[in-house]
Nucleic acid binder design. Sequence first.
DNA 1: CAGGCAAAACCTGTCATACAGGTTCGGGGG
DNA 2: CCCCCGAACCTGTATGACAGGTTTTGCCTG
Lengths: 233, 233
Amino acid sequence: MDNIASTGRVEDAIGAITRHIREKDLMPGDKLPSEALLSKELNVSRTVVREAFRSLAAMRIIELATGKRAIVARIDHGAMSLMIEHGVHTDQINIQQIYDVRRTIETRIVTLAAIRRSDAEATEILGLAERMRGDADNPTALMDHDLAFHMTLAQASRNPVYSLLIGAFQGVTRQTWPIGWKSRPTQAARDLMVTTHVEIAQAVAASDPQKATAAMSQHFDESVRALLTAGLS
Amino acid sequence: MDNIASTGRVEDAIGAITRHIREKDLMPGDKLPSEALLSKELNVSRTVVREAFRSLAAMRIIELATGKRAIVARIDHGAMSLMIEHGVHTDQINIQQIYDVRRTIETRIVTLAAIRRSDAEATEILGLAERMRGDADNPTALMDHDLAFHMTLAQASRNPVYSLLIGAFQGVTRQTWPIGWKSRPTQAARDLMVTTHVEIAQAVAASDPQKATAAMSQHFDESVRALLTAGLS
DNA sequence: CAGGCAAAACCTGTCATACAGGTTCGGGGG
DNA sequence: CCCCCGAACCTGTATGACAGGTTTTGCCTG
């Protein structure tokens, strides 16, 4: 009946370490104190410090490596990807919900990408779409190029949050992609998917946000339809 | 020069535990084996199992409690919130980028909410907007009601991924909200903000997606303008 | 026989210690 | 001046111990 959240020592240590990062204004790559030092300063055992480090490393807030000191980490979608996968696996999130979110953010992404993409990115995006055309008989390669296509677009949007989210969804997308592929049994349907990607790429390369957004919408319309055909819950 | 990612034992244990969850099809609330049992089955020390547990707990994939066995967790935005805060603090993400994402997903959320909200949710959303009107001289209460308003909308969208994302952004929003408030120094600007919320709530209550979406767009236009006025990087 | 209660068994949280590698850095030798 | 090697330092893992918290067992009572 005692609701006082008596936070354990590990939680305290996590707080102390994040506070340390903030107060010292550490940036990605900067080193943190050694486990021994922290355990002395916080008056806890090295065990506690290690568990705190592991927690922060799981969230990709810091990065660990044997022998080296822990360093502040660059943001990365790995942890988020696992969280989303867990949500999907435990039936707390379904694939259609993810597609609704992806559609929402990817139509925005492609608008921004059409405006802000560098020439190198335009070339890369076009190249990926082209390569998809040659992957007709190799679904795995096709999927990889598809995922890379969307990720490169996200990067071209110049907003790391979009990259983060797209990356977070790639884990589940990788697992469900084959379903969408199988639900496009005809050559026409498969060609359409690739063609749409080429259209998106060309619109982005032409710096035509309107056209790019429309093509992306069409892509998701078609994808969601395919998934519904497959009877995905 | 040896790129073979010889994953440590903790990483292996994390993999084994998540595999266990998937294979046994565990759902939120289900218990996991004890640390001692896992350490025996995986042929590692309890130390390793504990660090693996901490990692999974940090991502809110499992939940720990003293004395009890670890259980599979319900998805929760806590971890994501910390990750985003870290990204902002280390200058990898800026506030405008977050507002762009929020704008993108919240305009979608309000569309869905206007269609799918329950009557209870409509009442709650209207109530929160009304309460904001009474908070003119209490910025903290106003902020809390504002955040609750947006969170309730997300829940009304009936897509847990949107709730997750809105929750993930609330950590930083809480830290930057005062900046936005100070950048609305006139009574007129402050009234406008509250009025816009009321308009959104009314449109959602009236099941008018178009109007709701337009009002939400206006809200973000105004917010972003306020932040730019404040000279936020 | 039913119910309740207390001890036993089990479990997690933290600590101290030990040791096997990996990393860093400075000093000495070429 | 450069390179190499060893000392100092650091992380990864194992083991054993003990303090609480939780669940189960089983006995005792009514």
